[in-house]
Design a protein around this nucleic acid. Structure first.
Length: 874
RNA sequence: GCAGGCGUGGUGGAACUGGUAGACACACAGGACUUAAAAUCCUGAGAAGGUAACCUUCGUGCGGGUUCGAGUCCCGCCGCCUGCACCA
C-alpha cells in the first residue's frame, strides 16, 4: 500500500475486474449442485443496435439481486439472450439494404459488449438468440406438438391491409388510419391464419393469478380484467318476418338480462353474419361497413371512434312484451370477437347505449330505480344509471334487486323455447380472445407446415426440421419475401409426394419470448427442454421487466407453460414465481425558441439567481427547460449509455440508477445525479484507503470508549440487516439511503480513530470497513473488489458471504416517544423499551411544555401506544 | 372509449400494518482549506408570522368524511402516465 492517496479510477479498475471474473468463470452456473437454487431473469432485450438507459436499469436491478443471493449462498442462475426476431430488422433491410440476419447479429455483438461493460453476473455460456436456427428449430417442435394436441388451429381473422403496397401492416404502421409508407387508407382484410387456443385456458389462467402472491397486485388485476370473465345470458330474439332474410332468430349475449324490459334496440357487429347477408342488397349498408373497416384493427381506434349505427329496417320481437318490436342496427362499436357479436341496448343503464339512443332518437326506458328515488321523479337524460336499485317498469320483475331479477329472468327465458331451442341459456364469457400468431413477414420463426391440395395441412416431419429461413431474399418489393421465394415455397408433400406449398407465415415474436425462460436451463439440449433440469430450476424465482409487458407477454408465457405441460415439455404450474415491474427512465426536455428539441448534450445548465436555467452550447441562447419525459427520439431527450459508461464507469451508473427513485417508479436521469454517484464512490474509496493506512500507524495506548464502539457497531449491523430486507423487497433506493447513513457514520468514526489509534479502535474499524464493503458489493461490485484488495482480504468479494448480523445489536434499549396533545406533537420523551404505561403517564404530565399547555385544560383521556406514541386528549 | 397506476419542500424521494411528515440525496446559501479555482470538509434550511433563544399558524394535487390521531382508510373531483391483442 503506498502512502499517496489516489482517486479511484473506474476506467482502469472495471475492465480489470471484469477480466478476472471472466477468467475465473465466477458467474458460470453449474446444473448439478447441492446448494439451493435461485433463478433470476430479466426480460431479454430486443437487439435494436445499442442498449438504452432502460436496459441498464433493468439489468442492474437484476444484478443486485443476483449478487446478493450469491452472497447468501444460493446457486444463482442469471442468463442472457436476445429477442431477435421482429419488424425493425426488416425495416432496416428495406432502408439500408442490409440483410435482417446480418443486421441483427451485428447489433447483438455490439450490445453484448455494452452489457458486459456493466459488470453483470451473467452466465454468458448460456446465451442464445431467438433467431438462432437451433432455437427456432426447438420452437417448431413445440408448434407441431401443439398442433397435434389441438392447441393450434386455422381461422379467419382480420389484418390491416395496405391497398397500395399490397401488404399487411402492424398496428404501429397505421397512423390515423393511413399506412405509414404509402399513405393509403388502411382496410381490414380477412385472412386464413394460425391461432393458439389460449381461450381454452381462460378459467385456469384466471384462477392461477390467485396463487401468484409475489406478483404486483396491479399486474394481477390487469390480467384479470384482460381475461374478463363475465357471467350472463345468451338470449334468442325472434326476427320479425322479412322476405330478405331466411334466418328466424338472432342470438345476443348480455350480462344485464335484468334490464331486458328497458331494451330499445339491438346492435350487431359490422362483421356479423347477418350484416353480411343484408349487405348483399343494400348499397348504403355496404358503404357503412366499409367505412367502419377503415379504422383498422386496433381496438383502441375502434372504441375511440364516434359511435355510429346503421338502421337496417329489420326488427326483432321483444321476448316478453307482446307487440313491442325492437329495431336492429349495425353499430361500429360492437365487436364480433366477443359474445355473439350482437347486443341488446338498454340506454337507461349503459352509457354507451344511452349515447347511441340519444343520437338515433331511440326510446329510453328506465327499469332500475336507485335507492332514495321515486318513480315519478327519477329521470334519465344524458347520464345512464349503472348503480344498484330495484326493478320497475318491468312486469314480473318489479320490486326485485338486480341480482334477483337476473336470476328470475334467466329461469324464465330458459324455460321458454323457440323452434325447440331454449330462448335463454346461461353462459360464461371471456373477453380474452384466441392468440393469432400468423405474421406475413420474413424475419420470424417459420411455421412448419405444408399445404397440399390432396392431403390438406401436413406438418413438416420432425426429422426434416428445422424449416430454415432462406437467406437469399430481397426486400425491394412489398409483401412477404417468403411468399415470393419460389424454390423455398414450392415443395413436395411429405405425405403424398405431389407438389405442395410451404406455409409462408411466420410466428408472432411473442411466441419466441413465451418459453425462452425454460430454454436457458439447458440451451444446448437436443429437445426444447430438459424436463428433469427444468423441474429443479423452475419456476423463475424473480422475473424483472417493464410494466408495458404486464398483460400480453406475461399471459402468453403463462399459457405456454400450460401448453408445454400438455405436450410433455414441462411439468410446471406457473413460469414466474415473483414478478417485478420497473419504471421507465426519463429525462428533462429542452426546447429552443424555434421549438426544436435539444438533446441534453447540446445544453448547459447554469444557476442564475438561484434558478436553474439552460443555455444552448452552440448558440449560447437561453433554452426552455421542459417537462421530464420518457426518453424518446421525438423529444430528443436521450442520453447515450456509451458515453455515460465511458465517463463515469459502470459502478457510478449502477449506483445512480438505484439511488433516489423506487425502482417501480420512473427514474429521472440527471447529470447532477450521476455526479453525486461519482462522489459516493470516491468517498467510499477514500474511507477504505484511510482505514488501511491507519493500520500501519504506531498503536497508541489509550483508553477506548467501548460503549462508543458498541454504538457504531449497532449502526453497522442495523445497516446490514436493513439492506438485506431492502434488497429482498426490491427497495434499492431505501438501501442506498441506509448505506449513505452508514458511510456518514463511519466517516465520523474514522476521525475518532485517527485521533486515538488504539488497538481496539483499529480492530473495530477494520471490522466495520469489511462490513461496509460486503454491503456495497452487490451495488458497486468493481469498487468493492478494489477495496477488498487494498484491505488485503483474500479471494474475491464477489465470492464472499453476506455479513452476519448480530440480532442483539438490533434491539433498541431506549425509545423516543413523541407526545401529542389533541393529535399535535408538543414534546417527546425518552423511555426504556416496554416502559410501564402508568410511569409514562406520570412523566408526560410533568413534562414542561405539556404541563404548560395543559394548565386551564381538562385531560379527557391519555392514549399510549406502547413504544410508539402518547396522545393526550383534552 | 375501456382497463390499470401515480400525485409529498426548489428537485428525486423517505415515513413498516393509521402514530414525530420531509430520512437520504440533489440543487442552493454561508463558512473552513487554497494566491485562486476545482476537489474536500463543516453548518443551515417546508412555508408564513412574531426583531429573537424560542414560539405560533399553515402544510402531503383539490373538496368532503371516518378517527384520540390521516400522506396512509372511505366518497367525489382534477392532472399526469401506461396498456389495449400485428412494436417489442
Amino acid at each position: 500500500m503506498n502512502n499517496n492517496f489516489e482517486r479511484y479510477n473506474p476506467r482502469e479498475k472495471e475492465p480489470y475486474w471484469q477480466k478476472i471474473w471472466q477468467e475465473r468463470k465466477t458467474f458460470q452456473t453449474a446444473n448439478d449442485e447441492k446448494r439451493e437454487k435461485y433463478y433470476i431473469l430479466e426480460m431479454f432485450p430486443y437487439p435494436s443496435g445499442r442498449i438504452h438507459m432502460g436496459h441498464i436499469l433493468n439489468y442492474t436491478l437484476g444484478d443486485v439481486i443476483a449478487r446478493y443471493q450469491r452472497a447468501k449462498g444460493k446457486n444463482v442462475l442469471h442468463p442472457m439472450g436476445w429477442d431477435a426476431f421482429g419488424l425493425p430488422a426488416e425495416n432496416a433491410a428495406m432502408k439500408n439494404k442490409i440483410h435482417p440476419r446480418e443486421w441483427t447479429y451485428k447489433n447483438i455483438d455490439h450490445m453484448r459488449s455494452q452489457l458486459k461493460s456493466l459488470g453483470l453476473t451473467i452466465d454468458w455460456d448460456r446465451e442464445f438468440a431467438t433467431c438462432d436456427e437451433d432455437y427456432y428449430h426447438m420452437q417448431q417442435i413445440l408448434f407441431l406438438d401443439m398442433l397435434e394436441a389441438d392447441l393450434v388451429y386455422r381461422r379467419k381473422s382480420k389484418v390491416n391491409w395496405d391497398p397500395i403496397d399490397k401488404t399487411v401492416l402492424a398496428n404501429e404502421q397505421v397512423i390515423d388510419g393511413r399506412a405509414w409508407r404509402s399513405g393509403a387508407i388502411v382496410e381490414q382484410k380477412e385472412l386464413e391464419q394460425w391461432a393458439f387456443r389460449i381461450k381454452n385456458f381462460a378459467q385456469d389462467l384466471l384462477e392461477g393469478l390467485d396463487k401468484l402472491e409475489k406478483w404486483p397486485e396491479k399486474v394481477r388485476l390487469m390480467q384479470r380484467n384482460w381475461i374478463g370473465r363475465s357471467e350472463g345470458l345468451r338470449i334468442l330474439f325472434e326476427i320479425v318476418a322479412n322476405d330478405e332474410i331466411k334466418q328466424k332468430t338472432i342470438e345476443v349475449f348480455t350480462t344485464r338480462a335484468d334490464t331486458i324490459f328497458g331494451a330499445s334496440f339491438l346492435a350487431i357487429s359490422p362483421d356479423h353474419p347477418l350484416t353480411k347477408i343484408l349487405m348483399q342488397n343494400n348499397q348504403e349498408l355496404s358503404e357503412f361497413v366499409i367505412e367502419c373497416k377503415k379504422l383498422g384493427t386496433a381496438t383502441e381506434d375502434i372504441e375511440k371512434a364516434e359511435k355510429r349505427g346503421f338502421h337496417t329496417g329489420i326488427e326483432v320481437k321483444h321476448p316478453l312484451i307482446r307487440g313491442r318490436n325492437i329495431p336492429i342496427y349495425v353499430a361500429n362499436f360492437v365487436l364480433m370477437d366477443y359474445g355473439t357479436g350482437a347486443i341488446f341496448g338498454c340506454p337507461a343503464h349503459d352509457q354507451r347505449d344511452l349515447d347511441f339512443a340519444n343520437k338515433y332518437n331511440l326510446s329510453v326506458i328506465p327499469v332500475i330505480l336507485p335507492p332514495d328515488e321515486s318513480e315519478e321523479n327519477f329521470k334519465i337524460t344524458d347520464k345512464a344509471y349503472i348503480g344498484p336499485g330495484t326493478l320497475y317498469n318491468s312486469d314480473f320483475l318489479n320490486g326485485l334487486t338486480i341480482e334477483e331479477a337476473k336470476e328470475k329472468i334467466s329461469n324464465e327465458l330458459e324455460s321458454r323455447a323457440i323452434d325447440g331451442k331454449a330462448q335463454g341459456t346461461r353462459e360464461i364469457n371471456y373477453r380474452l380472445r384466441d392468440w393469432g400468431i400468423s405474421r406475413q413477414r420474413y424475419w420470424g420463426c417459420p411455421i412448419p407446415v405444408i399445404h397440399c391440395d390432396q392431403c390438406g395441412i401436413v406438418p413438416v416431419p420432425k426429422e426434416q426440421l428445422p424449416v430454415k429461413l432462406p437467406l437469399d431474399v430481397t426486400f425491394d418489393k412489398p409483401g412477404n419475401p417468403l411468399d415470393h421465394h419460389k424454390s423455398w415455397k414450392n415443395v413436395t408433400c411429405p405425405d403424398c409426394g405431389f407438389a405442395a406449398l410451404r406455409e409462408t407465415d411466420t410466428m408472432d415474436t411473442f411466441v419466441d419470448s413465451s418459453w425462452y425462460f425454460a430454454r436457458f436451463i439447458s440451451p444446448k439440449e437436443k429437445t426444447p427442454t430438459n424436463k428433469k433440469l427444468c423441474k429443479e430450476w423452475l419456476p423463475v424465482d424473480q422475473y424483472i421487466g417493464g410494466i408495458e409487458h404486464a398483460i400480453l407477454h406475461l399471459l402468453y408465457s403463462r399459457f405456454f407453460t400450460r401448453a408445454m405441460k400438455i405436450t410433455g415439455h414441462l411439468d410446471l404450474e406457473e413460469p414466474f414465481d415473483a414478478m417485478f415491474n420497473q419504471g421507465m427512465v426519463t429525462h428533462e426536455t429542452y426546447q429552443d425558441k424555434e421549438g426544436n428539441w435539444l438533446s441534453p448534450e447540446q445544453v448547459e445548465i447554469k444557476t442564475i439567481n438561484g434558478k436553474r436555467e439552460a443555455f444552448s452550447l452552440e448558440t449560447g441562447e437561453k433554452v426552455k427547460i421542459g417537462a421530464v419525459e420518457k426518453i424518446s427520439k421525438s423529444k430528443n431527450n436521450g442520453v447515450d449509455p456509451d458515453k455515460i459508461l465511458k465517463t463515469n464507469g459502470a459502478d457510478a451508473t449502477r449506483w445512480f440508477m438505484l439511488s433516489d427513485s423506487p425502482p417501480e417508479r420512473d427514474v429521472e436521469w440527471s447529470e447532477a445525479g450521476i455526479d453525486s454517484a461519482n462522489r459516493f464512490l470516491q468517498r467510499v474509496w477514500k474511507l477504505v484507503w484511510q482505514a488501511s493506512t491507519i493500520k500501519e500507524r504506531p498503536i497508541e495506548k489509550v483508553e477506548t470508549d467501548s460503549e462508543q464502539i458498541r454504538q457504531f457497531r449497532k449502526l453497522v449491523h442495523r445497516t446490514a440487516h436493513q439492506v438485506s430486507i431492502e434488497i429482498e423487497t426490491i427497495h434499492f433506493n431505501r438501501a442506498v439511503a441506509q448505506i449513505y447513513e452508514l458511510i456518514n457514520g463511519l466517516s465520523k468514526f474514522i476521525t475518532i480513530v485517527e485521533k486515538h489509534p488504539s488497538a481496539s479502535y483499529i480492530a473495530a474499524l477494520d471490522e466495520f470497513i469489511e462490513y461496509l464493503i460486503l454491503i456495497i458489493a452487490p451495488f458497486t461490485p468493481h469498487l468493492a473488489e478494489s477495496c477488498w484488495q487494498i484491505l488485503g482480504k483474500t479471494g474475491l468479494v464477489s465470492e464472499a458471504s453476506w455479513p452476519k448480523v448480530d440480532q442483539n445489536l438490533l434491539i433498541e434499549e431506549n425509545i423516543i416517544m413523541p407526545v401529542q396533545v389533541n393529535g399535535k406533537r408538543r414534546a417527546q420523551i425518552s423511555v426504556p423499551k416496554d416502559y410501564a404505561k402508568e410511569k409514562i403517564e406520570q412523566k408526560v404530565l410533568s413534562l414542561e411544555p405539556i404541563s404548560r399547555i395543559l394548565t386551564d385544560k381538562r385531560v379527557k383521556k391519555i392514549i399510549i401506544v406502547p413504544n410508539r406514541i402518547v396522545n393526550i386528549v383534552v
